[in-house]
Design a protein around this nucleic acid. Structure first.
Lengths: 240, 240
DNA sequence: GCCGATTTGTCCGTATGTATC
DNA sequence: CGATACATACGGACAAATCGG
């Protein structure tokens, strides 16, 4: 069962991206859309608010809703919402391979608790993986999972998709992800694992992930080759 | 005139940040909040949705709204929503100084139009500035403004705050900002202007800013010293 | 400058569904 | 099973901004 506002959102989004509603044009008015979808204007408004929050449109009081999305060329390795490495690679139509380096158990020390946000003493499963994009060693992925919530991780699972395992097999719902982006000097491990050729720094994304119970079950550090990294967000001056 | 949902949002946000509703606790239920603020549950829901989108809380169907915000130590130079360099510096309680390097006019060439998104041939005002944080040359800011919408820029304005000029004097409303992050090798200009000491790369933020008419009036490239840069966002798996 | 039509913005009260306990 | 709590949606009311006559 899919929500109406979500269907309207996706419909409009597709029409914006395919150019049916080009840059600087106006969407149909709320009342027209409400009539088209035979729903209330509030439901239409919700879909439009989502588009505005994504930076696709700009509602102008008394005038209409203007499209401000400009189709851009494919970016190196764009990161947006919460999505699997696999999903991102497919969206970018790139050939992606994952290689598992190690899987180990550990107990959370005080200093790691401070860094990661896990409770001291809890058992975590530490996974190290390399991501290859079109043959290039591009991303060194270091994940820590609360073993209690994500048990029995195997190399086979880690090589395929841990998220598919979490959401599919375990039936857990991934909900909120908080990430921080920095640029850092390359470490020895980076130089050994990533094909840096001439670069001596990496783009680092640190990630705290929560499930639908509000429990942080994953802490991740992804160390990216600068050539294959770009990160886009939209900020709004006023709350919608 | 302030919206009710905005007041509730700010109230709850403050109580979360000051620890009145600590990490992992639950907010009062919708109906309680609606009674407290003497408003409808829809208005409360809107405030809660904003908190969820900001990564502060996690609503759990049938249970309640759990706080997932953990007060963190002050970061080097955190960038969040749309805000002035001045605002960000004050929030981080850092001493910030701006020095204007140059202000020039130019006509948008085809290649720059492609990079920036400005229409070919339009007149832009190009401003170059250095930002000093606690005495360190930290950020090289390169801004381009549509001269038609942001006229008469002077060194005095650029040294104070161009945003204050735009929103105050010109009365224009800044609404949506789309930004992209990358990490890049330092250019000659970076090494000359920024106090890189040992680093040979910069964190780059590219920015497209729209006003409330949906017109892109600003294109910016901020080149940050890696030591003084960090950026955090929240991604949600499902639309709210 | 004023008025009325249109369009977005905020809010309410209610109904129904779904998940938790 | 019933009470509670969040989730979606409806329909209506009024406010604020825009635009054309």
């Amino acid at each position: 069962m899919k929500a109406i506002f979500d269907r309207i959102y996706n419909d409009l989004l597709e029409q914006i991206e395919t150019g049916k509603y080009p840059y600087q044009s106006f969407l149909p008015s709320e009342s027209e859309l409400a009539k088209d979808y035979t729903c209330s204007h509030n439901t239409v408004r919700r879909a439009i608010r989502l588009l505005a929050q994504g930076g696709y449109v700009q509602p102008i009081n008394g005038k209409g809703v203007r499209v401000i999305w400009l189709p851009v060329e494919r970016e190196a390795f764009k990161i947006g919402g919460i999505e699997t490495f696999k999903e991102a690679a497919r969206r970018s139509s790139l050939h992606a391979i994952t290689k598992v380096l190690s899987i180990e158990h550990a107990s959370v020390t005080e200093s790691f608790a401070c860094e990661s946000g896990f409770p001291v003493g809890s058992d975590v499963t530490h996974v190290e993986r390399m991501r290859y994009i079109d043959g290039h060693a591009a991303i060194l992925d270091r994940n820590w999972y609360l073993t209690e919530l994500v048990p029995n991780l195997t190399p086979a699972i880690a090589e395929d998709s841990i998220y598919a395992y979490i959401e599919g097999t375990l039936g857990m719902r991934v909900t909120t992800s908080r990430r921080t982006f920095t640029a850092e000097k390359a470490l020895k491990a980076d130089r050994e694992a990533i094909d840096l050729d001439g670069y001596d720094f990496v783009a680092v994304v640190t990630n705290h992930t929560f499930n639908d119970d509000g429990i942080m079950f994953e802490y991740t550090q992804s160390r990216h080759h600068p050539k294959h990294f770009s990160f886009t967000t939209v900020a709004l001056r006023d709350q919608l």
